[in-house]
Amino acid sequence: MASHTLHHADILPNGTVIHLTRAVLTSARPKALHDHDFVELFWVQNGTVRHHLPGGTATLTEGALILLRPGQTHALQGKGDAALVVAVALHPELVDDLDARLPPLTFWQAADSPGQIHRDMHQLTALNHAANLLERGPHDTLAAEAFLLPLLADLARNDTGLPIAAPVWLHRACAAAHDPAVYREGAAGLVALTGQSHPHVSRSLQRWLGQTPTAYINRIRMTRAARALTSDNEPLPVIAEAIGLNNLSHFHKLFRAHFGVTPLQYRQQFQRDVVQPTP
């Protein structure tokens, strides 16, 4: 396929830095790929979409969220009669400013290939609510950041750390592993999400992150435990049980390995001493 370029000057009127479009896709095969001189963020609101890329095609289902940087070529094709996408164009200067301020986030900073992540029903509802607010207000920098930052903060909270090139099934499983119902079950909970065998999941995590499934889940568990230690006064056995560790001695061992201090020392350092410091 040949390709052509879309320019932000044709899409973003003077004084605007963000533009939202809703479109029902036709089922006609695109005649050409296109790229942009701006960042495009789009998600599949309804139906199924065939995503054409230089290296082939991918099937996107409801909840797929895609980010394309300038120079990344693609095209969209509906599969069926109800393929609806919502696309957001972001001014290059807005993106440059965010790039300079944001911490590392795999999805946002994808450069070699489009960023892709899946939004579940509740996350998609929140995204659509934010889109509705954006549509009703000005399209200036404040409105753009009010739309983008909650989304990116949510993605950062559950960032898998996986490169974009990692398999989609692994991205989805690692993102879902932040759900308490999953990490309480340990490595078995993560593996069950994938539909793959335990050895295959282990090899894949070692390849893409250099970790075992157990190590990946324990990192999530310890992060959740650390938050609990500074935000409430629950006894340690309650916190350990909440993250799926009924053996208190094992909890202490894992926590010290991750943070270098015991859970009680961590609580004192980051909870009590912050609000009631001693000389």
Rank of each mutant, 00 (worst) to 15 (best):
F270P: 00
A225S: 04
Q269K: 15
V261W: 10
V261E: 10
R221K: 12
G210F: 10
F259M: 07
R227W: 07
L229S: 06
V274Y: 13
S249K: 14
F251G: 00
G210N: 08
P277F: 10
M222D: 04
L264S: 14
D273V: 03
E241T: 11
R272I: 15
L245F: 03
R221S: 03
P277G: 09
L209Q: 14
M222F: 06
A225N: 01
Q271D: 15
N247G: 00
D273L: 13
T212P: 08
V275W: 10
R219C: 04
P213R: 15
A257D: 14
D232Y: 01
R207K: 13
A240I: 01
G260V: 02
S202C: 04
I220C: 10
G244K: 06
T212C: 09
P263T: 00
I217H: 05
G260F: 12
R256H: 15
T212N: 05
N233P: 02
A215W: 03
F259L: 05
Q206N: 13
I217N: 04
R207P: 08
L229C: 05
H252T: 05
R227K: 13
R267N: 09
Q268G: 11
F259P: 01
L245K: 06
P213W: 15
T262W: 01
I217Q: 02
F259Q: 07
T223H: 12
N246L: 08
P277E: 05
L205N: 02
R221G: 02
H252R: 13
A257C: 08
F259K: 09
S249L: 13
A225G: 05
R227S: 11
S204A: 11
F251P: 00
Y216E: 12
L264A: 15
T278L: 15
N233A: 14
N247R: 11
D232G: 11
A242T: 01
Q206H: 14
H258I: 00
T230L: 06
L205R: 03
H250Y: 14
Q206L: 14
I243N: 00
F270W: 10
P263G: 10
A215Y: 00
A215V: 12
T212M: 08
L254P: 01
L229K: 07
L248I: 07
M222G: 00
R272W: 14
T278V: 15
I239N: 06
T262G: 15
L229G: 01
S204L: 04
T214L: 07
L205W: 01
R203A: 13
S249Q: 13
R227D: 12
R227T: 10
P263D: 05
S231L: 03
S231A: 08
G244L: 04
R272N: 15
G260R: 10
R207Y: 09
P237I: 07
Q265L: 12
L205K: 01
R221Q: 09
V238S: 09
Q265A: 15
L254N: 01
S249Y: 08
L236T: 05
L236I: 07
G260D: 00
F270Y: 13
P237D: 11
H258T: 12
V275D: 09
L236Y: 00
P263K: 04
T262K: 07
A228I: 01
V275S: 08
T230Q: 14
T230C: 07
D273E: 13
R224G: 01
A240D: 04
